[in-house]
Amino acid sequence: MASETLTKEATQKKDEKETLKKVSIVISRGTLEGVYPGLIMANGARMEGIEANIFFTFFGLNAIHKKKMKKIKVDTVGNPALGIPPIVGIIPGLNRMVTKMFIKEMDKLDIPPIDEFLEMIAATGAKMYACKAAMDMFHYKREDLIDEVADVLTVGQFYEVAAGGEIIFT
């Protein structure tokens, strides 16, 4: 009997399309290519009606730091995927040029610059949080961060916020 019930349940489950309800995305890196995937995923989740949180930690905090957010760049040193010789990557100003190119290409796809993107994401109802340990480590204050940040959380509090959903680390 029990197995019959189980089979029935399994069939029912198969018929229903599975959907994600909630995602919590950790952004831990402070380069352009480290920040954007998490932002696009969080925004994309909201576009699908999925609840979304973003937790900025370590150098990821730069993305929500009022002054540092404007200086985020593509990493041209030690990034073989760029396809340029490693020695070229260290040329002063190169990362600024590459970053400019990336931002231009992204703009063509209507992917906004970081400041506008964060405003948009906050407007979708996604919640943004900063990691307390990283804030303490870098000696950042709450007022150093953009107003859209909902709160500064310990890792324990982050898990409470993320409860019942998927966690994605980037």
Partner: peptide
């Protein structure tokens, strides 16, 4: 954006 999400809840673009 905020209005769009209110007008077309759970997936405004689509």
């Amino acid at each position: 954006v905020q209005d769009l999400y209110k007008l077309f809840p759970d997936g405004p673009a689509k």
